[in-house]
């Protein structure tokens, strides 16, 4: 239902890499508003996004510790006061409830609509404000769009098959993951689609804190997925156990059972955040090939498989690859 006032103008201005999409389609001129959202072809409209992400301003923080007191998942630590304060916020534990923002006496914590929070390292989700967070800035969305499509094309022949594994989630993440298939997000624009079996999947998207009862099933699903493969740990639960941390019935995150390439925080992460996570994962995979001295065919034709064995899609390989 989200209508677009500037159907694809920006996208068309991007030059040769751009390609008409539902949003950019001139069909909308005739048939009315297009329901597919702009991201990642162009930036998501921040006025339409809920501001849920706590953002910390170092200058304003006086170390009251109020945020620590109300945080339901122990995502925040504050040491020292005044000038000496060290503030740490773990987006891997955060459930984006904004209680910390509500109680911050100095306005150091504010709620932002930013959602491109996924990281390749668990540690990078820990925002620490006595040292600068060493994370490369996100590229402009149009680049993200083009790179995702190119990488899917080069590495996976134009189609990235994803198997969703719920390892004990509350089912909130499932709403957002399945939303990727709705017209509003339409992840197939990027070649990302969900498949029914791990046997022909390229990636596993895992939600939930990994319950003791799901451990074996997750391990088996991972082993059943042929290499090359990568795993996205999705949501506060998938990264750290989220609100269920401390329960003896959970293992506390996907990384404790299978190797994880990308961590996508959120409770749940919005569909755009998942798309961002895929971009990140594909980039890492490409880098890895570069490091191994393998050439990724730069201009691989869209939808065509790479010609040689650069991206070996061999038979099932048992869990040894891709350690983070």
């Amino acid at each position: 239902m989200s209508t677009s006032e500037d159907p694809g103008k920006e996208a068309q201005d991007q030059g040769q890499h751009s390609r008409p999409t539902a949003r950019a389609s001139p069909l909308s001129e005739v048939f009315g508003p297009v329901v597919t959202g702009p991201y990642p072809l162009s930036p998501a409209d921040p006025s339409r996004l809920g501001a849920r992400t706590p953002v910390h301003s170092r200058d304003r923080c006086e170390g009251s510790g109020e945020c620590v007191r109300v945080c339901p998942t122990e995502a925040i630590t504050v040491e020292g006061r005044g000038e000496e304060v060290t503030f740490q916020l773990d987006y891997g534990r955060c459930i984006f409830c904004r209680r910390c923002v509500d109680v911050c006496p100095t306005g150091a914590l504010t709620a932002s609509p930013q959602f491109e929070l996924a990281t390749l390292q668990r540690d990078d989700l820990r925002l620490m404000h006595s040292r600068k967070r060493e994370v490369a800035p996100s590229p402009p969305p149009s680049q993200l769009w083009e790179e995702t499509r190119q990488r899917v094309s080069r590495l996976f022949g134009g189609s990235l098959a994803v198997r969703e594994v719920d390892a004990g989630s509350c089912n909130g993440c499932e709403v957002e993951v399945s939303a990727l298939t709705w017209p509003a997000y339409d992840s197939e624009r990027l070649g990302i689609h969900f498949v029914a079996s791990p046997r022909h999947a390229d990636a596993l998207l895992v939600t939930g804190p990994v319950t003791a009862n799901m451990r074996l099933a997750l391990e088996k699903t991972y082993r059943a997925t042929p290499a090359p493969k990568f795993v996205l740990a999705v949501g506060a639960c998938g990264i750290s156990g989220g609100p269920f941390r401390g329960s003896p019935e959970i293992l506390g995150g996907v990384g404790s059972v299978v190797p994880v390439q990308v961590f996508v925080p959120g409770c749940p992460p919005r569909p755009e955040a998942l798309l961002y996570g895929f971009w990140l994962a594909l980039g890492k995979l490409e880098q890895k090939l570069h490091r191994k001295g393998l050439e990724v065919p730069a201009g691989a034709s869209r939808g065509g498989r790479p010609s040689s064995g650069e991206t070996p899609k061999s038979g099932p390989e048992h869990g040894s690859t891709d350690a983070p």
């Binding site: 239902m1 989200s2 329901v35 339409r48 996004l49 809920g50 501001a51 849920r52 459930i95 984006f96 409830c97 904004r98 209680r99 709620a111 909130g172 709403v175 957002e176 939303a179 298939t181 709705w182 017209p183 509003a184 409770c267 749940p268 919005r270």
Partner: peptide
């Protein structure tokens, strides 16, 4: 199914604009 999901997105956008969270969390 697609049409239902178009409508569903609209309902989630209500929740998002009202609460900041698409699922009305917190």
């Amino acid at each position: 199914a697609a049409q239902a999901n178009v409508l569903r997105q609209e309902a989630y956008s209500w929740l998002e604009s009202l609460t900041g969270s698409r699922l009305g969390r917190s």
